[in-house]
Design a protein around this nucleic acid. Sequence first.
DNA 1: ACGATACGAGACGGGCCCGTATCGTAAGTA
DNA 2: TACTTACGATACGGGCCCGTCTCGTATCGT
Lengths: 216, 216
Amino acid sequence: MKAEPMAAAGAGLPATTGRGRPRSAAADSSIVETVLRLLEEGTTLGELSMERIARSAGVGKATVYRRWANKDALLIDVMRAIDEPLPPLAGTSVREDLVVLLEVIRHRGLAKRSSAVMRNVIGVIQSSPQLWRQYHDTVIRTRREAMYAVLRRGMRTGEIRDDIDVRLLVDLFAGPMLSRALLYERAPLEDGLSEQIVDAVLEGVRPSGHPASRRP
Amino acid sequence: MKAEPMAAAGAGLPATTGRGRPRSAAADSSIVETVLRLLEEGTTLGELSMERIARSAGVGKATVYRRWANKDALLIDVMRAIDEPLPPLAGTSVREDLVVLLEVIRHRGLAKRSSAVMRNVIGVIQSSPQLWRQYHDTVIRTRREAMYAVLRRGMRTGEIRDDIDVRLLVDLFAGPMLSRALLYERAPLEDGLSEQIVDAVLEGVRPSGHPASRRP
DNA sequence: ACGATACGAGACGGGCCCGTATCGTAAGTA
DNA sequence: TACTTACGATACGGGCCCGTCTCGTATCGT
């Protein structure tokens, strides 16, 4: 994977006027890419220092501080960099759309860099709530709302029970995939897992003929 | 909550012979309790330093190093300290037992100190795999195996489908609760959530009469 | 009483980090 | 060309931390 262009990273300090030597776009992406690489290699957010980032990126400290005022500001842009748009949903069946959305989580869990970011950000919910909020708003919320929409549509079309809280439904589908992605370094996210989860949650895990089943 | 006695903490260095002044049990528990309090207050594992721990516990650094060789050794004992035995399972119905096991997760998620530990340890899977393994083996594995047992029993008694991988079943039940406990500081772990999850996963979220349902 | 060990406190040398400033140089605009 | 800004490198004072060691004191076995 090569360094994506990722637009102008430094949201903190604007590049003022157009005079003088322009900011190096290569430095931008080198810094962001280096942070992702370090996290991917197992570095903890706490072990990440501006000094180490600059050193690893082959860049002067001033070049980093010229773009970001502190580590949190840099990390926020790093999180923006790994945000990828959701694939389009076919919209034909709820099952298919749910599988697509779970596949997104599965692939992000398999990608070391995104799973490392997610695990690290979770550990920082209390200590850097602003960083967490940024991650939640850019990465989590979008996917969650997409699943809301699919499930609500399913309630209208009769594909999904309408007597269960939509937020609980989201967790029933996403939770199993998320916990597998989070709790293991080499996550057991095998092919076909999305379909297995979706089908099992849709159908239920009680045998058809069991007396306690709500189906006659 | 007061400092529990928690047995002899220092697994690292044995107290050699019985001569001389004995180790202070109060220091033992004060140190462990202080670590838990700091984590509970939002301190990151990376921000925890032996120096800060000693200072916060009102203890000399030597007193800490006399018991634990380094931070990881201390943290391993801290994790042992929050390990609580599972409640007995009634064994009458699979549903009841699953609810009990999910209630354990729910209460641990609501308790700030255990959820803080869990979130922090997750962030350290790659950087301190030995610490993670300790947490996994003492805290996670036990509960997971208890759920295995319940589900396998359910397969024998006909309360649970036997055509789904038991490991997947565990994640279907535990995943929703875990992801809620991990992804939010004030986790939405309301009363009755365990029952809702268990029942929804057992029954399925497809309406009874839906054409795609596997029930005729 | 006496020797042994633990205690809290803190000094110690060495290390990494913070955020800023200053080099000489490079790459743009006017 | 003159001016302006960015570049990598590195020095700076200040801070926290590591793990060890040394105080003077406390609390045990013998």
